[in-house]
């Protein structure tokens, strides 16, 4: 039995039409369509392209929040695919975003290997390179006959459970993922050679290319502190005494929320710290050193601030991945918004 693969393409590659047909609604057809021929021949006899799912680029883009993804997933699911290919999209921006979106959804929801392809400057590449394998293509569909065999090869490798090598070997756009391996030489030995090369002005390399850190514009200033609702957030690992929610001492997987309602200070009988990255002795004795409930309560009484929220939000900062920290905030920010929080103090140790 050949292994089943489903292929996603847009209205243009399906031969339905160009810009004028970009509102074409989702449709699935048995067998191959358009570039599916190239895919079929690159995959070989042990694989079968059982269906081709087609969607107009504009339809996809304007319905991305209105259920186009679940709709497509339902269509794809019926064919019980074991692998999924989207595009390649080359330099077509909306098509690239659609390929990335659907490939990621199939990977996450149907748990099968996926691959797509696009030109490195396609906006879809930056959006999805961390999530799915994107074969790097040239900027026009003239590259189809070179690109499709690479897509097919990488899909087969994944479906056969073989080790996927680096971006250079496989031809995908670098995902920015840090993967371990055992080097032939130990680190110190390589470092010694590297510093000599650097001093001599010879070519050098780095194991870890510096990432570009994104910046966010500051939120507008608070106008009326005396009526503001202030929330306290910390990465100092402060938890309820006994750590009922098992917050980790390092590499936190979650955030917690604890009540400070009616408390005039943070007492050691109520709170403790589990942070594994500093000497906990001081904060253990007086949690106010990290969550300043005492001072905030006094300021609240004086009318300097409107209200100290009845809870604080906490996690452990040390060893916690930046993406996890981002996710925590994405999870609790809606809560802050719902509770009409006007300003936040975030205390890090």
């Amino acid at each position: 039995m050949p292994k089943k693969v489903v292929h996603y393409i847009n209205q243009f590659f399906a031969g339905i039409g160009g810009e004028d047909k970009a509102d074409y609604k989702p449709e699935i057809r048995a067998g191959i369509v358009g570039p599916g021929l190239a895919l079929k021949s690159a995959l070989g006899n042990e694989y079968e392209v059982v269906a081709t799912v087609i969607c107009g680029d504009n339809y996809f883009g304007s319905n991305i929040d209105k259920g186009v993804v679940p709709e497509l997933l339902e269509m794809i699911k019926k064919y019980k695919p074991e692998g999924f290919v989207a595009g390649p999209a080359f330099n077509a921006g909306r098509y690239g975003v659609a390929c990335g979106t659907i490939a990621k959804a199939v990977q996450d929801e149907l748990h099968i290997p996926v691959v797509t392809g696009m030109y490195v400057e396609n906006p879809g590449a930056d959006m999805f390179k961390k999530d799915v394998y994107i074969i790097e293509t040239k900027n026009s569909s003239a590259d189809m006959r070179h690109a499709m065999p690479k897509l097919a090869a990488l899909l087969k490798k994944q479906m056969e459970g073989k080790e996927v090598l680096g971006p250079k070997e496989e031809g995908y756009i670098e995902k920015g993922i840090r993967v371990n391996y055992f080097n032939e030489r130990r680190g110190s030995e390589r470092a010694v050679d590297l510093i000599v090369a650097k001093v001599k002005g010879e070519p050098v390399y780095t194991d870890y290319p510096l990432p570009v850190v994104d910046k966010v514009a500051p939120a507008p200033a608070l106008k009326d502190l005396a009526h503001a609702r202030i929330a306290l957030v910390t990465s100092g690992g402060i938890v309820r005494q006994g750590n009922p929610d098992h917050l980790e001492s390092s590499s936190a997987s979650k955030w917690c929320k604890y009540s400070i309602e009616g408390m005039d200070h943070a007492d050691k009988k109520d709170f403790m710290t589990v942070h594994g990255g500093y000497d906990r002795a001081f904060i253990t004795e007086d949690p106010d050193l990290c969550i300043p409930v005492d001072v905030l309560r006094e300021l609240e009484k004086k009318g300097f601030i409107g209200k100290l929220m009845d809870y604080f939000i906490t996690t452990t900062g040390t060893g916690t991945a930046t993406n996890s920290a981002k996710r925590f905030a994405e999870e609790y920010v809606p809560l802050l918004k719902k509770d009409r929080v006007d300003g936040v103090l975030l205390v890090s140790t």
């Binding site: 961390k130 110190s188 510096l210 990432p211 590499s251 991945a321 996890s324």
Partner: peptide, 22 residues
């Protein structure tokens, strides 16, 4: 320490001079 999925920043702090790292 870029996280279990290897997708986060590897270090807590950075500087442009750190252009050769082992």
């Amino acid at each position: 320490f870029p996280g279990r999925d290897g997708k986060s920043y590897s270090l807590a702090d950075l500087t442009p001079e750190a252009n050769t790292m082992i």
